[in-house]
Write a protein that binds this DNA or RNA. Structure first.
Lengths: 352, 352
DNA sequence: CATCCTTGGGAACGCGCTTTCCAACGGCTA
DNA sequence: TAGCCGTTGGAAAGCGCGTTCCCAAGGATG
């Protein structure tokens, strides 16, 4: 009976438990627990030493799920992004993970592949894991039903003690890091206008993402105010990737060969567009057509011509979001506005 | 007394437990558990319906740590990379995470920031979380003491039922996806030789990484065999990033302005080198100097001139590693060799 | 109509750890 | 020397859930 609970010799397989450590150190589980993870209670140095030696000899590794259950809290944060291999998300994730690591937290990263259902599902699963907080990165979806369900999940989570931080534009009542997409896109439009462009096309992204709507709106509104609206069929929906930009540019050029400038809603799309222009369409950037992107991912400066774009401090955004999560405030929801800066490089020039 | 165990009304805060669901459905916990996660036992459809309704109404979210404890296994895999925001790791991580998601597993991602101590520490922490397996991505460290400690951790993990898969070159006895770094680098050397280059410099990475040693060795050996060895001072240690490549190139050119070709041990470094050449040194690629990289990250094709490099199927490598993990074999350790393909683009040309 | 087998449901135990709550012990003061 | 208080170690009660092991009821069989 007692043997099954307090076996002294460890012959059977399976992980070493606290009990094993306690037994070989000749103390109770309580004592072992107290020395192995800084409890408030202090254990005599002699016993403490014995316990630590036993733990080391047995190669004890604590059981985090068991601890989580007993303490009813974990040291895990969840993060949900649309695609880790997109430099936009990668940079934000890196920033967030850095501050998580500083606080000694582990990060569970989930990829939605831009599927709203998966996003909601991941929120639920991360909640199940009792993550102490969730960072959602990326555009919100404009579908009200999806937004509603997501919001509900998040609200429940907060009500049961969870924390939430968003990096996205969406009017959910949680701490948010909010990039000024609209204003940034407006700056892009202003630049093109100043350069004399009037025939402008747009490479947009998947429908239903709020980020896209805002960038689109900021851009078009500015153009419209100047009497240079973009006709609907000069807006091509790409899929927000390099290859999507390539294909989208082909289509756009076919429909409107007269365009003198193209605004891509993110950098990879812009890079793809430039490739299509160069390799297939045979127009040169910026002489024949100016291209402007958004985000300023690291490679934007290395393509040729270097990409004019709207810069967002990606890593910092990730950091800020994680800090919001880790330093809760009583007067949430808070919003941190991140301003977007136009970075003029070589892919834009004035119309001749 | 009983009320504390089986409260029918939920007024108090805190997460909803299985008990709550069972109570409001008027069944036992066992029954509730059986319907909520497909047990082998079948529950009558009427009761099942009641339970499901109760769960939905109460917004029940299972407690993963509790489940983990009870079942003594989790649905979590751990992955350790050096830097998520490096496109190399991002691509591998994306591949691995995709197959993890297919198997309905959550991924805990840890960033070492290239610090071996952190890597070992993360292995321990991920073990504590009872991840069912660990994927370690990135170069191994050549320091034998570190390798020993890491190996020990990993071995313990496997002995207690964990699984391990590596994406790296290192002779640890675990399932491994092994990129042919040596052979790939040799191909790069062969290309340069064929193009007539004899004065060649190298932009290397941080010391102590096995990947770097192998690439370096493959390259130099081939050159040496052709009587065109690279002098030690024509090897500059950069830090494996774009900016590191930029700085490294500056130094390399200062030491050896006569070089006609440069081999960068990864693509970001090569891209940085090209930028330095163009912006600061004033030499053009490939006319004045040929540049060749390694990995073929997505942007390699978009810089100008497009980068000649050695291609590694990054996403696939991640997928393969995760599959190794998820489909254990009795005759492990297995090794999957990934062959590296030379991709000749515009950044290399024959010496005039 | 009695018996055996099938099927569903409930009670109880255990997973590994944290955390009160007690008890024992020693040192101190009166 | 007796009486107290502050320490320190241990026992035990959970944390929320999965999972036997049983019992009860119903159907099929002889």
């Amino acid at each position: 009976m007692a043997a099954s609970k307090s076996r002294v010799a460890r012959t059977e397989p399976g992980p070493v438990t606290l009990q094993h450590v306690a037994d070989t150190a000749g103390v109770s589980r309580a004592t072992a627990s107290r020395v192995l993870n800084g409890s408030s209670r202090i254990v005599g140095s002699e016993l403490a030493e014995r316990v630590m030696r036993a733990a080391r000899d047995l190669r004890y590794v604590s059981n985090a799920p068991a601890q989580a259950l007993a303490r009813s809290r974990t040291t895990v944060v969840g993060m949900i992004v649309h695609a880790v291999d997109d430099p936009y998300f990668a940079a934000i994730a890196a920033g967030a993970m850095r501050v998580a690591a500083e606080h000694d937290l582990l990060t569970m990263l989930a990829n939605t592949f831009r599927d709203p259902e998966r996003e909601i599902d991941y929120v639920a699963r991360l909640r199940a894991h009792r993550a102490l907080g969730l960072v959602l990165v990326g555009s919100g979806f404009t579908d009200p039903e999806l937004t509603e369900r997501l919001s509900e999940q998040l609200t429940d989570f907060v009500e049961t003690g969870g924390r939430v931080a968003l990096v996205r534009h969406q009017s959910l009542p949680f701490d948010t890091v909010l990039p000024e997409n609209r204003r940034g896109a407006a700056q892009a439009a202003e630049l093109l206008l100043a350069l004399g462009h009037r025939k402008i096309g747009i490479l947009s992204g998947p429908d239903g993402l709020s980020t896209i709507e805002h960038r689109l709106a900021g851009f078009r509104d500015t153009l419209r105010a100047a009497g240079a609206d973009v006709p609907d069929d000069a807006i091509v929906t790409a899929d927000f990737t390099r290859d999507g930009g390539y294909a989208g540019m082909l289509e756009l050029d076919q429909r409107h060969p007269e365009l003198t400038a193209v605004f891509a809603l993110n950098d990879p799309t812009a890079v793809g567009a430039m490739a299509a222009l160069r390799e297939e369409i045979g127009k040169s950037v910026p002489q024949d057509v100016s291209v402007i992107g958004f985000d300023d991912v690291p490679t934007a400066q290395d393509v040729t011509p270097a990409l004019t774009t709207v810069r967002l401090p990606l890593e910092e955004m990730g950091e800020r979001a994680m800090r919001l999560l880790l330093e809760p405030s009583d007067r949430s929801p808070r919003t941190i506005r991140i301003k977007a800066d136009l970075v003029v490089r070589q892919s834009t020039t004035s119309v001749t």
